[in-house]
Every structure is written in structure tokens, then in C-alpha cells.
Design a binder for these strands. Structure first.
Length: 481
DNA sequence: AATAATTTCGG
DNA sequence: CGAAATTAT
């Protein structure tokens, strides 16, 4: 027996901050060799992009939770910042490790980094092993009959259904043999991931608890209380009826295969179950698109939109970000985002439609704002969804599908509970006018102590006028080659 | 995962 | 004549 058997291996954590259903960890344990858990803080210049402010907060707490889980098993999560290849090289040199294991990531810059690392390590005679698990299926696996990537969601969903059940998750190991802590390990606080404006994220923890245990509890509560009726209830932002899994999925604190597994065999209407699974499939579709069209985060998927004349009104953009547009459902959504690092899905569509169609501001500015302020910021879902609303994406809503913020409010926030929660200056307004204070008689406004233009803004654009303007601008590009 | 305008339906 | 269905954007 050679002493190779005792050589440690590096388990490189990335967007898989979990012990459950972690195929790299599972494989590492099976080798019987000491494991060195490592998280590398890669510089944004490496191409992985700047870490959004809200997600930095979430990453801090998720890493703290993973550290605690690993410590409970007798190990340490080593934290090292720097270029990933340099860090891995240094750790290998220091520890004598000859193997690196990780779970694959699917954002194009991440893929490029990993491909290079794998090649370099193998050239040095080292072993680099990557595993699946961030998605239900590898993005290259599902193909149309013609062998091309899917461009339309429904056939993609059918293919996903027809691809057989996703792999069963593997449980977290009960025992792990760890290698020694690295001398180079840094402290989490030294990374300064928490926002420097302490008042910004102060309310995030009203809604978000980091870590695997919290994710599993939240999932269990959702499946127990909200899956029955999910298909219709999910559209009402004042109801607690969506799964809230996206922040956990974004950093891999829970795996999609685990979520899928937990939905098996439940006694709920098939419609509700399928609809929830279809939301997981939208995430898969987004990654499928990003994988096959790496420019998704910044280039119009449909390049006919390259000639679209966007507005560059900074005043309008700022009013949108602050939730001061004068349309209550839009403002409530933008303020929920600022307060909790999250926004209900229905409202995301409404505010995105408002930015793109009513303000005619480039979807990329909205995408960037969401990337910075969403705890669940995800390169695939965020980019694909903005392009979807803009009408320039794959299987997108046609551009002329323009949300009316008043009607959307009245339809999905009938009693105004959502608006009243996040736009407190309108809380006392008569329900009849809660989504259109600008149409309320003076006496009604007086009664609610609202002075339009002072305590709450007048609409920054007239929706009907803005709608016509957007349709005209669209007509100018729609017949272009 | 839409809305507004227009036409048809039912009384 | 208002509601529901259809159609254009």
C-alpha cells in the first residue's frame, strides 16, 4: 500500500454551500482520505462578476452556517481569497493534496475558470473531479429532435418530464474525516461581506434565515401549508404562498433534486404539484439558455431589439429604484426589494414591465439593479426573466404584452394589503383607490392624510400615454431584420 | 407569464 | 345594453 492513500483531497465549495445532496462531498467521503474543505473568494475581475450587495449579506450568513455544520463534524471550512487556480495551487503545495473535487457551476465565466483549472491540474499530474447537482439535469443533456438547444419553454418542460425522474439526492454524511486547518485560512469578518450601510440590510433577517436547516424547515412548511392551492395562490403577493426557495437555490444551500424529491408522493392536487415543479423547470430553462447563449446577461437574445431606442432618464430610473413612481403596486414591490432583499414573483413582472414599457429604460439597467439588491440574485434566472419581460428573450412575452399597474394591483392585491405593508403612507387610503391614489377625490385623500406630490408622489408617467409611446417605439424595430 | 378595442351573445 | 368572447397590439 503506497502512502498515496493518505494524501488529503481538497473539497472546493462554490455555489453549493451545503452538506446534503452534495455529490462532490459524497465522493470525497468514499475515498476514505482526509478532506480539506475550502471556499475561495474569487476576485470579480476573474469574470464571475461583482457580488451583489444583498447576496454578499446572504453569502456571509450562508458561509457562517456551513462553517458551523462542518465544525459540528469536527472540521473547518477554510476561507481563502484570490484567483482560484493560485489558491488551489498554494493549498496543494502546502498540504500535499493531489485531488480537487467540486460540484459544477454553469455560469459562463465560472465554466471558463473551471475548464482551465481542470486542464492545469491534470497537466501537473493531479486529479480534478467535478460532479453534477446544481441542476436537475445537465444543461447539455436536453436537446430538441433536431439536436439543437430549446428556445421555447413548453417543449423544454415536456423534455424535462420525459427525461425521467431527476437523480435521488444523497444524504449528508454523518461522519467525515477532515484534514488539518490551513494556516492561510482567513476569517469571514475580514471579508467584509456585510453592507457598510448597516441600516440597509437590517430588516433582511425578518424574512431570511441562512443555512441548510432553515432551508429544509422552510421547504417543509411550504409543502405542508401552501402547495395545496399553489397554482392560484402564488399570484397574490400578500399571501405567504410561494416557496421562498430561490435564495437557498442561488447559493446551493439546498439542491433542486432535494426539493423535487420532497415533492414526491404528497397528497395535493396534481395541478398544484406540477405547477410548482414547473417553477423549478423555469430555473432549469434559464440555465439551459445561459449555457447555450453565454451573452444572455447583457445581449438581446433577439437582436432585433439592438436598435430599440431606450430612454436614459436618470430621474425616472431613480424614482423606480426608490419606489417613488406614484403607482402603488410598483412602489410596494421596489420597497419590498429594498427592505427584504426579495420581491414576490408576480410583482417582479409588474415592476419590470413598468421599467421597460412605461419608462422605456433598458432592461439591462433593471437586471443590474436586481442583481445588486436581490438576496436570490442568479445569473441565469435574472437575465432570462428580464429578457422575457422585455420581449427580447427566448420564448418571451411579446413586447405588446404591457402590464397595467392599476389593473394588476386590483387583480392580485384586491384589498391592498401588500401596498399597505410596504407603502405605509397609503395605509389609510380607501381600498377603492389604493392602487390609484391619483384618481381619488380630494376628500378621500384628506381622510387618509395623503397629500399627493408631498407625502406620496404623483405618477411619474401617465400609463396610457406611456403605453402608446412604447408600442410606437416597438413598431419602429419589430420589422427590422 | 396582458390589455384595450371590437364584436358577438343573451336577455 | 351590459357581459362575454374574440381579436389586435
Amino acid at each position: 500500500m503506497s502512502d498515496d492513500a493518505a494524501k488529503p483531497l481538497i473539497l472546493w465549495f462554490r455555489k453549493d454551500l451545503r452538506l446534503d445532496d452534495n455529490h462532490a462531498l459524497h465522493a470525497a467521503c468514499r475515498t476514505g482520505r482526509p478532506i480539506i474543505p475550502l471556499y475561495i473568494r474569487e476576485p470579480s475581475s476573474s469574470g464571475t462578476g461583482p457580488l451583489g450587495g444583498a447576496q454578499a449579506w446572504w453569502l456571509h450568513h450562508s458561509l457562517a452556517s456551513l462553517t458551523a455544520s462542518i465544525e459540528a463534524l469536527g472540521g473547518t471550512l477554510n476561507l481563502v481569497s484570490g484567483d482560484a487556480l493560485d489558491v488551489l495551487g498554494a493549498v496543494i503545495k502546502k498540504t500535499g493534496a493531489d485531488t480537487v473535487m467540486w460540484n459544477r457551476r454553469y455560469d459562463p465565466p465560472g465554466i471558463a475558470i473551471d475548464t482551465r483549472i481542470k486542464r492545469e491540474l491534470e497537466q501537473q499530474g493531479l486529479d480534478a473531479q467535478s460532479f453534477a447537482g446544481q441542476l436537475l439535469h445537465e444543461p447539455s443533456r436536453l436537446k430538441t429532435g433536431g439536436g439543437t438547444p430549446y428556445r421555447v419553454y413548453t417543449p423544454f418542460w415536456r423534455a424535462l418530464e420525459g427525461a425521467g425522474e431527476p437523480p435521488h439526492p444523497v444524504d449528508a454524511p454523518r461522519k467525515v474525516e477532515f484534514g488539518p486547518e490551513l494556516a492561510a485560512s482567513e476569517t469571514l469578518t475580514s471579508w467584509k461581506l456585510l453592507p457598510t450601510k448597516p441600516d440597509w440590510a437590517k430588516d433582511f433577517d425578518e424574512v431570511w434565515t441562512a443555512g441548510e436547516e432553515a432551508a429544509r424547515e422552510r421547504l417543509a412548511d411550504f409543502l405542508d401549508e401552501s402547495l395545496d392551492g399553489y397554482k392560484s395562490d402564488r399570484d397574490f403577493p400578500a399571501r405567504q404562498s410561494t416557496s421562498m426557495m430561490s435564495p437557498y437555490l442561488a447559493l446551493g444551500v439546498i439542491s433542486p433534486a432535494r426539493i423535487w424529491e420532497e415533492t414526491r408522493g404528497l397528497d395535493v392536487p396534481a395541478d398544484d404539484l406540477v405547477h410548482f415543479r414547473k417553477e423549478l423547470a423555469w430555473r432549469e430553462f434559464s440555465y439551459h439558455l445561459l449555457f447555450h447563449f453565454p451573452k444572455l446577461p447583457y445581449a438581446n437574445w433577439n437582436d432585433r431589439f439592438d436598435g430599440f431606442e431606450w430612454s436614459n432618464s436618470e430621474t425616472h430610473f431613480r424614482a423606480w429604484t426608490k419606489g417613488m413612481t406614484g403607482y402603488p403596486i410598483v412602489d410596494a414591490g421596489m420597497r419590498q426589494l429594498w427592505k427584504h432583499g426579495f420581491m414576490h414573483n408576480r410583482v417582479r413582472m409588474i415592476v419590470a414591465s413598468f421599467l421597460i414599457k412605461d419608462l422605456m429604460i433598458d432592461w439591462r439597467r433593471g437586471e443590474a439593479w436586481f442583481r445588486d439588491t436581490l438576496v436570490d440574485a442568479d445569473p441565469a434566472s435574472n437575465a432570462a426573466s428580464w429578457q422575457w419581460v422585455a420581449g427580447c428573450g427566448a420564448d418571451a412575452a411579446p413586447f405588446f404584452r404591457i402590464f397595467n399597474p392599476v389593473l394588476q394591483g386590483e387583480k392580485f392585491d384586491r384589498d391592498g394589503a401588500y401596498v399597505r405593508e410596504f407603502v405605509p403612507e397609503l395605509a389609510a387610503l380607501d381600498t377603492k383607490y389604493i392602487h390609484k391614489p391619483f384618481a381619488a377625490p380630494q376628500s378621500v385623500l384628506d381622510k387618509a392624510d395623503i397629500r399627493l406630490g408631498e407625502t406620496y408622489p404623483k405618477p411619474i408617467v401617465d400609463h396610457a400615454t406611456a403605453r402608446d409611446r412604447a408600442l410606437k417605439a416597438y413598431n419602429a424595430v419589430k420589422d427590422a431584420a
